Simulated assay, not measured.
Amino acid sequence: MKMKKAFAAILAGTMCAGMLVGCGTSQATQSDSKTDRAVKVSDYDGEITLVIATKDEFLGTLDNAVKAAAEINNVELHSVDCGADQDKQNDAVRAAAENGVDALIVNLADDSRAQDVIDAAGDIPIVFVNRCPKDTSLLNDTHVYVGSDESTSGVMQGELLADALKKDGQTEAHYFMLKGTEGLLHTMARSEDVIETLQKNGITAEETIPAIDCDFSRSVAMEKVNALLANGADFSKVDTIISNNDDMALGAIEALKQAGVDTSKMKIVGIDGTQIGLQAILDGDMTATVFQSTSGQAAASLQAAINLASKEKVNTGISYQLEDHTIWVPFEKVTEDNVGDYY
């Protein structure tokens, strides 16, 4: 199994010096597989709390990856799932701060309410992971972000789709889009950038069935597509399904197949590169996805939290790019040609 780039970019400086070539660059020289193996990032004797928005396929994997990184580092980590409720998240952050944790890792339930989280944390440093505060001016030396550039994911998805369409001699996409949680920055970025990229690549994009918001949920996508079918939506004219994540794409595929709709000739693209998304590419159910490294984000966010708690520079021991209080973990394109490198 080929080892992925995305994870072992996060290593302690001593490990870098002794084991890796070119460790000071923003690109990793070693990597993990889809199993999200933990890598020892630093020795640290303290307590960190992870407060995660919810545990869908992707965020559940992220939660497990942070726990794995903490375990291998002998870091005491507490994890709290807020069930996508920002008020509950604020309460969890406040409770963790009152209990004297050294740092917090927070996956926002609502990216427009990061100030609430900061207020609840008081003087405790925060690493926001995967979902960036909508107001990026809130980021500073003690409130940082670790994640992947969402505009990049939409662009990559558009490029993958354009390549797949052109390969079959198509210059038009009659598409149906499944969007994530309404109002979140990455929902908007993924939805807008993929269409703009198609057009820039010479593909005429026509929305054949109006987009639906499915909260990044496979079950919600399946339920809503079933409702569309029951109300007479004609999917025979759809040749492209664009989904803000793999889960929703798979929910749509399942609903359509159960209704007797042939999806075999549709171009279907997702984002995240989850295990089930990768399997769908192997099975021929999905055309492509954009891999988002849970293990890379997990290791980087844990190391950043350790650094903040230890009064170190936030990017100490991290070889991903640091820019304006943000540590960028790159997205990567996945197709049938290279899916085996990730699965």
Rank of each mutant, 00 (worst) to 15 (best):
A6V: 07
F7R: 05
M15R: 00
V21Y: 09
T25W: 01
V39W: 02
V51R: 03
T61A: 14
L62F: 09
V66C: 06
K67W: 03
V75P: 02
E76F: 02
V80K: 07
V80P: 03
D91H: 07
R94Y: 05
A97R: 04
E98N: 15
L108N: 05
A109D: 03
D110S: 03
D110Y: 00
R113V: 08
A114L: 07
I118Q: 04
A120P: 03
A120S: 11
R131H: 08
R131Y: 04
V146M: 08
S151T: 10
G154H: 01
D163Q: 12
T171A: 14
F176Y: 13
A189L: 15
A189C: 11
T204S: 12
I209E: 04
D215Q: 14
L228D: 08
L229G: 02
D234F: 05
K237G: 11
K237C: 07
K237F: 06
N245A: 13
I253H: 00
L256W: 01
Q258W: 04
A259Y: 10
V261F: 09
V261R: 11
D272F: 00
I281R: 00
T289N: 09
A304C: 11
S310A: 15
V314Q: 11
Y320S: 10
Q321L: 14
E323Y: 14
W328H: 12
E332Q: 15
K333F: 07
